[in-house]
Structure formats: C-alpha cells, structure tokens
Design a protein around this nucleic acid. Structure first.
Length: 291
DNA sequence: ACCGCACCCTGAGCGC
DNA sequence: TGCGCTCAGGGTGCGG
C-alpha cells in the first residue's frame, strides 16, 4: 500500500526515466474508474509532450509537461509505476507466476492490469503504470487548470508539526488514528505509518483526537517523520504489491513494529500486539505501551 | 461542521 | 477440485 515513503521512492527513481524525454506513444486499457481523464483523450493529448519535472504532493505524483500541463498520478492501493526493464514476481499474479517456467518468472509483459504505457522518442525504457484493483488514478490537467484534489491536501507529513496537529485535533471527537489518516490534515500518511507513529508516540489509535495532548501530538508527528524518513532510506515497505520502479523490493516491512503483527510480541514489552478496526481500517497497537 | 459508513476493485487465502 | 466467503484499504460521497 503506497504511502508517502513508497511514493517518494517511486518519484526519485521514475524522475530520471521521464524528465527530459518526449512521449512518442501512449497505450492504455479501456475506460474505467481508473481514468479521471478518458483514456482516448489521454492518448491524444500526451503524445509529443516532453516531461519537465516530477513532484510529489502527499501521495500524488505530479508530472510537469512542456507547455504547462500536468499529469497527475495516484498509486491507490495496488498501483505500480515502473520501468519496462523492471523484473519482479510482484508484477505477476500468482497464476501468471505458476504458468511460467522458473527461469522466465521475472520477465514482465504488459497485461490487462497495465493501464498506462508510455513510450518515448529517445532511447531508453518504457514506463508502465499497472494497478490490479484500479484504486489508482490518472488525470491530465491543462495549463493553469486548478486541481481540487491537490488543493484539498493538508501539510505534507514530512513538513507538518506537532503544534499544527494539536490545533487541528482540538474539539474533534474522531479517533486520532482517523484524524491522522485524513489527507486534508496530514498529506501522505497511510495505515502503516500511522500505526507505527502511534506506537512510537505511545498513543492508542482509538483515543478521541481532542483528548490527545500537545506533547503527544508532538511525539506523533516526530514519530511519523522518523518512520517515513527511515522507510524512504530503505526503499519503502513491500508488504503485498509495492515494487520500486526498478523492480526492487523495499526493506521497511522488516522494521515495522506493530503493523500487521497481530498476536506477535511488542518489541518493547513482549505483550501481544492487538488488532482493532477503527474508521473502517485495521489498526495495530500494543495495549500496554499505548494509552 | 462533523462523523460514520458504503462503495469502487480484484486476488489471495481459507473453510467446507 | 472448486465454490463462496472474507479481507485488504485510499479516497469520495452521502445521509444523519
């Protein structure tokens, strides 16, 4: 599940593959929920354009085009943005893996889930955007066209402060976990890093946001930044589908303290980690260390 | 304004 | 073997 660290690692590694290159051909799958801009329009409008930059806003990637347009990308839950040279079993379904001989298992060919394929005018690999569940998004913005999705985002998780979270949480009755997952409050946070940050801060995910103290908000934001920076260093978390643009796995899944560790011992006190659904999301916490 | 919840989607894993 | 069920969750939108 791509959150800020996975999106940032993707940005850093996709940037050299697209910036300065001119699009020669665009292939897409059929119209679907995935395409905020209809695929036919995307194919038509993208050809001949050159990418001039790639930025990240929360969990969105914003590719800048010559002439001022922008291509908005969101990886959703299972989105994978990668080079055509990438090799990873994560790019294949279990049945596709089983059908291939062992020595062929890592070769990727675009499949029905590869919704966007970019071919370039100059030498170098193609760039593919694959997304099995289609929770991802692609949108082409005209020059100067405002983007409501981006405008709604709160301060980026790596830039925000505990003081800002404290202010945003006053008089709020929602669970603190739900509040920090709200992208208009902290942009880039997701389920994994929220659970990890709450553990580091010693705060239970279900506590009413308005009852979290200033000191705890500061610990929460510090913890969030700490786990995210470390995750970026290790290439992100590859728990189910995430692969970096070069096909490599991240390493942070091996460093997580609570996420998806239900029943496992707390790394601080050995108490079994609990799982509880909060705001339609599974939350993981230590009942002893987090109050 | 705030909050809970249904929904979009598909594949993996599990019980029978 | 195969069917049906549940679960995973980012983000949007709706009803109370």
């Amino acid at each position: 599940m791509p959150e800020l660290p996975e999106v940032e690692v993707t940005r850093r590694r996709i940037e050299p593959l697209i910036v300065g290159r001119k699009v020669r051909q665009v292939r897409t799958t059929g119209d679907s929920y995935f395409f905020l801009t209809p695929p036919a329009k995307l194919r038509r409008r993208l050809v001949g354009r050159r990418f001039t930059g790639l930025e990240r806003r929360g969990k969105y990637l914003v590719a800048e085009l010559d002439g001022g347009g922008r291509l908005l990308l969101h990886l959703g839950m299972t989105g994978q943005l990668f080079s055509s040279l990438a090799q990873s079993p994560r790019l294949l379904s279990a049945t596709a893996r089983a059908a291939l001989a062992p020595e062929q298992q890592r070769v990727f060919e675009p499949d029905e889930h590869t919704h966007l394929q970019l071919r370039f005018a100059h030498e170098g690999p193609d760039v593919f955007f694959r997304d099995v569940r289609k929770f991802g998004k692609v949108q082409l913005l005209a020059p100067g066209e405002p983007c409501e999705r981006l405008d709604k985002l709160g301060t980026d998780a790596l830039e925000t402060t505990g003081e800002e979270l404290f202010r945003a949480s006053r008089k709020r009755r929602v669970a603190i976990k739900s509040l920090i997952l709200d992208q208009s409050v902290i942009a880039g946070s997701g389920n994994i890093y929220s659970d990890e940050a709450l553990f580091l801060a010693g705060v239970r995910p279900g506590r009413a946001a308005g009852r979290v103290t200033r000191a705890e908000c500061i610990r929460l934001v510090d913890g969030m930044k700490k786990v995210m920076r470390r995750s970026i260093e290790t290439g992100g978390s590859s728990i189910s589908d995430y692969v970096a643009p070069d096909g490599s796995d991240g390493g942070y899944q091996d460093e997580r303290r609570v996420y998806a560790r239900k029943g496992g011992p707390c790394l601080s006190c050995q108490t079994p980690i609990r799982r509880k659904v909060i705001g339609q999301r599974s939350s993981h916490y230590c009942p002893r260390c987090q109050t």
